[in-house]
Design a protein around this nucleic acid. Structure first.
Lengths: 101, 101
DNA sequence: TTGCTATATTGGAATTTCTCGCTATATGGA
DNA sequence: TCCATATAGCGAGAAATTCCAATATAGCAA
């Protein structure tokens, strides 16, 4: 159930994906148009897409990559998919990286 | 004079390069055949190559990549080039990453 | 069912990375 | 000077990544 450090590094080796993860730290500030409480459920794909300025398919792909690396989780509510940070795994990754290098 | 976090992540997004940087943490243990004090001058390319099991040209490329990312430094002494970690920049990178994500 | 919206998936072109073998260069010794 | 060794740099082919448009799918409402 732990993080693969190489998967996480691969996911973060892309400025857009890195920025998405960073912005999700303070979703209320960075995605103010999100109406459902982002701290609770996350931020939906289309709002992330709008901010990132990339196509819908690319953002969907990037969010899937971040999820595969276990840095975010997603949940579907009705037609929307909400993504939010997996704080425990992000902290675990940072610790692993710190210990390794 | 600071580190570019995207350059560093790119350099580390490769298991071989990540392993090289990790092994350079304890060069006396991981590269015992190195005769000149590795803590002082670093480890020479051919010894790193032998351990990594990759071609000489690939290792030379990887070490250059790590150096471009400012995670290691090199110095030439006679015919040999010695690489060692840039501890200050590595720590700075970890801190930047920690603050960002 | 039909149609609309949100997201995921697929396919493809351009670019980058990976990794090698080969060659070039630099150093030091005979 | 000539040779041997250590490292860097130059193609090149295979694989991976980037990113889009187009298509598919899921959910909801009429």
């Amino acid at each position: 159930m732990s993080i693969d450090i190489n998967d996480a590094l691969k996911a973060l080796d892309n400025p857009a994906r890195l920025a998405i993860l960073a912005k999700l730290k303070d979703p209320r500030k960075n995605y103010p148009e999100q109406e459902v409480d982002p701290e609770q459920v996350g931020v939906c794909v289309s709002i992330i897409q709008e901010r990132a300025g990339l196509s819908q398919s690319t953002i969907s792909l990037y969010l899937t990559a971040l999820q595969r690396a276990k840095l975010v989780t997603s949940q579907r509510i009705g037609p929307w998919t909400y993504y939010k940070r997996d704080e425990a795994n992000i902290a675990a990754f940072l610790k692993q990286l710190q210990d390794l290098i």
